[in-house]
């Protein structure tokens, strides 16, 4: 559905030194991006501030011309056939900017529906359905300037859906939302995905990416440094994980645990009030149910299981030696 080959984008910026002195400098925002996003995927783009996520999205949505490389969306080249590409994409790019604040939400939607060739006779119906789905009845006929920040985001989201495009591109859609609103929005994104849309979801919040996306690419300094399912990404950097079990565990159970497939090492420690079993494995998800089964078979009573979790934050750190929160824009 989306193919990106060796895409680069360089901005020419004028730097100011004092009142009059300026100099030109090239900012290499994208340095050879390769991506393949399949039809129907919910694909995450994860990266710290300044990684180039927005730049990539602007190239994919034809707002920017790439400096070199190619990108095709639904079979259309972004440079050769921009109108077809735009037609295929619903995009939420700049949050609450990009709306007419003096108009009502409904007027905004009608306007953009027209710009996306939604036939006149379908417009009102389509908009009414969106209002229902996103629960915007209470404020949709008020001027946008009277909206809360979350309501504006919702309207921007509705705007991206107004022409019912097969591809949705969302650039940090939950950025200014509070926790419940963000959850609501993610739920709707998941629904839209279930209906068959291809979704590109940008975020710098790794839990969000982990929770929502089936596949993701980690972008850093204009390149894709890793790509895959969240599990694959984790495995890529951490070959084994350690599961920690606490409770009353008969020491002879360890031998059987040791013989479970993909278990590498087993250690047991005696604590004041019981035991702590540590199991090192390369497939924690497969091992966990068997581990618990085995322990019960030996009459163990389990109080607590702590599966060690490698987060995407760990993955990013392992790959770059930096944290996601670090800002790379100044470099």
């Amino acid at each position: 559905m989306i193919q990106v080959r060796q895409l680069t984008k360089t901005y020419q910026v004028r730097e100011r030194h004092g009142l009059f002195a300026t100099s030109k400098r090239a900012v290499h925002a994208l340095n050879g991006i390769d991506l393949d996003i399949e039809r129907g995927a919910l694909f995450g783009l994860l990266g710290p501030n300044g990684a180039g996520k927005t730049t990539l999205i602007k190239c994919l949505t034809t707002l920017l011309l790439p400096t070199s490389g190619t990108a095709t969306i639904a079979g259309h080249d972004v440079v050769q056939a921009p109108a077809q590409v735009r037609n295929a994409i619903g995009c939420m790019l700049m949050g609450e900017r990009g709306l007419y604040w003096k108009l009502t939400g409904r007027e905004n939607l009608a306007y953009f529906a027209a710009l996306y060739f939604v036939p006149r006779h379908e417009r009102n119906q389509r908009i009414a359905r969106l209002i229902d789905r996103l629960r915007m009845q209470d404020f949709i006929d008020r001027p946008v300037e009277s909206y809360s920040s979350g309501q504006k985001m919702k309207l921007a989201f509705a705007k991206a859906l107004v022409h019912d495009a097969p591809i949705l591109v969302l650039d940090e859609p939950t950025n200014t939302l509070d926790v419940p609103s963000a959850r609501e929005l993610r739920a709707i994104v998941a629904e839209l995905h279930a209906e068959g849309r291809t979704i590109v979801y940008t975020t710098h919040v790794m839990t969000e990416a982990e929770q929502l996306c089936q596949r993701l690419a980690i972008v850093d300094r204009g390149t894709v440094i890793a790509q895959g399912t969240p599990d694959e990404l984790r495995r890529q950097v951490v070959a084994t994980e350690v599961i920690q079990v606490r409770g009353q565990i008969p020491p002879r159970a360890t031998l059987s645990v040791q013989s479970l497939p993909s278990v590498r090492e087993v250690a047991i420690a005696t604590l004041d009030d019981g035991h702590e079993l540590l199991v090192r494995t390369s497939e924690p998800r497969q091992v966990l149910p068997k581990l618990i089964e085995t322990l019960y078979a030996y009459g163990a009573s389990i109080e607590d299981v702590v599966p060690s979790r490698t987060t995407l934050e760990d993955v990013f750190m392992a790959l770059t030696g930096r944290t996601l929160a670090e800002d790379t824009r100044t470099r």
């Binding site: 949505t61 034809t62 060739f117």
Partner: peptide, 9 residues
């Protein structure tokens, strides 16, 4: 920018 995202010429 929002207008430039749309396919309208």
């Amino acid at each position: 920018e929002a207008i430039y995202l749309a396919p309208a010429s």
